[in-house]
Amino acid sequence: MTIIRDKTKSQNSNSQNFTQAVTANRLTDGYVVYLTDRDSWSERIADCQIVDDRSAADDLLQRATDQAADDLVVGPYLFKVATEGGRTIPIGQREILRTTGPSVGTDLNLA
């Protein structure tokens, strides 16, 4: 996967390339999940809803927070993404690893 470096200083920047999605950990197993446009949670980043302005991001996070209050997920937050050739790509090493799983070992049998 191409690593796209995070050159902006704030996750809530009003920059022109403001694309974000919401991620969290699922309550039952802690797995990484992404909020979809159907208010469901998917293990695939390809399913995530992407927003490109602050107002929409606030709405997205609020929906995710409501879901967390319903005890489906833990700790939802916004993170930056880019789209390349129709693919959604997380920005920054931490989010890349959350998406792909550990970069080492033989335990990478993620569903």
Binding site: G30, G75, R98, L110
Partner: peptide, 11 residues
């Protein structure tokens, strides 16, 4: 208190 963390990918 029971040693259970929530980490990057899982508990």
């Amino acid at each position: 208190m029971n040693g259970l963390y929530l980490q990057l990918h899982a508990y």
